[in-house]
Protein backbone atom coordinates (compact mmCIF):
# COMPACT_ATOMS: atom_id res chain seq x y z
CA UNK A 1 0.00 0.00 0.00
CA UNK A 2 1.38 3.31 -1.04
CA UNK A 3 -0.65 5.36 1.44
CA UNK A 4 1.70 7.08 3.85
CA UNK A 5 -0.73 9.26 5.86
CA UNK A 6 -1.01 6.54 8.53
CA UNK A 7 2.72 6.29 9.26
CA UNK A 8 3.28 7.16 12.92
CA UNK A 9 5.59 5.94 15.68
CA UNK A 10 4.49 4.00 18.76
CA UNK A 11 5.11 7.09 20.88
CA UNK A 12 3.05 9.36 18.63
CA UNK A 13 0.18 7.03 17.70
CA UNK A 14 -3.18 8.19 19.10
CA UNK A 15 -4.23 6.91 22.53
CA UNK A 16 -5.76 3.44 22.11
CA UNK A 17 -5.22 3.80 18.34
CA UNK A 18 -8.49 5.80 18.37
CA UNK A 19 -9.45 7.85 15.33
CA UNK A 20 -10.18 11.24 16.86
CA UNK A 21 -11.42 13.02 13.74
CA UNK A 22 -14.92 12.13 12.50
CA UNK A 23 -15.23 11.31 8.78
CA UNK A 24 -11.49 11.03 8.34
CA UNK A 25 -11.84 7.92 6.17
CA UNK A 26 -12.39 10.33 3.24
CA UNK A 27 -8.68 11.07 3.53
CA UNK A 28 -7.79 7.44 2.94
CA UNK A 29 -7.25 7.10 -0.81
CA UNK A 30 -8.14 3.58 -1.87
CA UNK A 31 -7.80 4.15 -5.62
CA UNK A 32 -4.28 2.79 -5.80
CA UNK A 33 -5.56 -0.71 -4.97
CA UNK A 34 -7.14 -0.83 -8.44
CA UNK A 35 -6.07 -3.24 -11.19
CA UNK A 36 -9.00 -2.44 -13.51
CA UNK A 37 -10.89 0.79 -14.15
CA UNK A 38 -14.52 1.28 -15.25
CA UNK A 39 -14.92 2.85 -18.70
CA UNK A 40 -18.31 4.36 -19.60
CA UNK A 41 -19.80 4.19 -23.08
CA UNK A 42 -22.01 7.30 -23.17
CA UNK A 43 -23.81 6.03 -26.30
CA UNK A 44 -25.31 3.18 -24.24
CA UNK A 45 -25.76 5.00 -20.88
CA UNK A 46 -29.33 5.95 -19.97
CA UNK A 47 -28.26 7.90 -16.83
CA UNK A 48 -30.23 5.56 -14.56
CA UNK A 49 -27.67 5.84 -11.73
CA UNK A 50 -27.47 2.12 -10.92
CA UNK A 51 -23.65 2.41 -10.82
CA UNK A 52 -23.97 5.26 -8.31
CA UNK A 53 -26.40 3.24 -6.15
CA UNK A 54 -24.37 0.02 -6.12
CA UNK A 55 -20.85 1.44 -5.76
CA UNK A 56 -19.69 0.09 -2.35
CA UNK A 57 -17.17 2.91 -1.95
CA UNK A 58 -19.50 5.77 -2.90
CA UNK A 59 -16.92 6.67 -5.56
CA UNK A 60 -19.59 7.62 -8.12
CA UNK A 61 -21.13 11.09 -8.31
CA UNK A 62 -23.46 12.77 -10.75
CA UNK A 63 -21.87 15.17 -13.23
CA UNK A 64 -23.47 18.37 -14.62
CA UNK A 65 -24.56 16.67 -17.85
CA UNK A 66 -26.42 13.94 -15.91
CA UNK A 67 -23.92 11.11 -16.35
CA UNK A 68 -22.31 9.33 -13.40
CA UNK A 69 -18.57 9.30 -13.02
CA UNK A 70 -16.31 7.37 -10.63
CA UNK A 71 -13.71 9.27 -8.64
CA UNK A 72 -10.47 7.45 -9.42
CA UNK A 73 -8.96 8.38 -6.03
CA UNK A 74 -11.48 6.10 -4.35
CA UNK A 75 -12.56 3.56 -7.04
CA UNK A 76 -10.99 0.19 -6.13
CA UNK A 77 -11.91 -1.30 -9.49
CA UNK A 78 -14.20 -3.96 -8.04
CA UNK A 79 -16.40 -3.99 -11.16
CA UNK A 80 -19.76 -4.01 -9.36
CA UNK A 81 -20.90 -1.00 -11.44
CA UNK A 82 -20.11 -2.85 -14.68
CA UNK A 83 -21.92 -5.94 -13.41
CA UNK A 84 -25.03 -4.02 -12.36
CA UNK A 85 -25.31 -1.68 -15.38
CA UNK A 86 -28.59 -2.70 -17.16
CA UNK A 87 -27.30 -1.44 -20.51
CA UNK A 88 -23.77 -2.90 -20.34
CA UNK A 89 -22.50 0.64 -20.75
CA UNK A 90 -19.58 0.09 -18.36
CA UNK A 91 -16.63 -2.14 -19.20
CA UNK A 92 -13.60 -2.85 -17.02
CA UNK A 93 -10.30 -1.96 -18.67
CA UNK A 94 -6.90 -3.05 -17.30
CA UNK A 95 -5.21 -0.33 -15.28
CA UNK A 96 -1.97 0.78 -16.93
Amino acid sequence: MANTDAIVGWKTITFGCHVLEPGSSAKFRTGDWRSQRPVLDKEKCIKCGMCWIFCPDMAYSRTEDGYFEANMEYCKGCGICAHECPKDAITMAPEE
Binding site: M1, N3, T4, A6, I7, V8, G9, W10, K11, I13, F15, G16, C17, H18, V19, L20, E21, P22
Partner: peptide
Protein backbone atom coordinates in the same frame (compact mmCIF):
# COMPACT_ATOMS: atom_id res chain seq x y z
CA UNK B 1 -11.95 8.38 31.10
CA UNK B 2 -9.31 9.76 28.76
CA UNK B 3 -11.70 9.32 25.81
CA UNK B 4 -15.25 8.09 25.72
CA UNK B 5 -17.88 7.44 23.09
CA UNK B 6 -20.08 10.52 22.94
CA UNK B 7 -22.37 11.38 19.99
CA UNK B 8 -21.61 15.07 20.53
CA UNK B 9 -17.88 14.47 20.01
CA UNK B 10 -17.66 11.44 17.72
CA UNK B 11 -14.46 9.36 17.65
CA UNK B 12 -13.71 5.86 16.37
CA UNK B 13 -12.51 3.19 18.78
CA UNK B 14 -11.14 -0.04 17.33
CA UNK B 15 -10.33 0.83 13.71
CA UNK B 16 -8.49 -1.53 11.38
CA UNK B 17 -4.74 -1.57 12.02
CA UNK B 18 -3.15 -1.81 8.61
CA UNK B 19 0.39 -3.26 8.49
CA UNK B 20 1.83 0.27 8.63
CA UNK B 21 0.38 0.91 12.13
CA UNK B 22 -0.35 -2.48 13.74
CA UNK B 23 3.15 -2.95 15.17
CA UNK B 24 3.15 0.59 16.58
CA UNK B 25 -0.32 0.12 18.14
CA UNK B 26 0.71 -3.15 19.83
CA UNK B 27 4.00 -1.65 20.98
CA UNK B 28 2.18 1.34 22.49
Amino acid sequence: PVYRLDPRRPITMGPVGIPEVYTEARMA
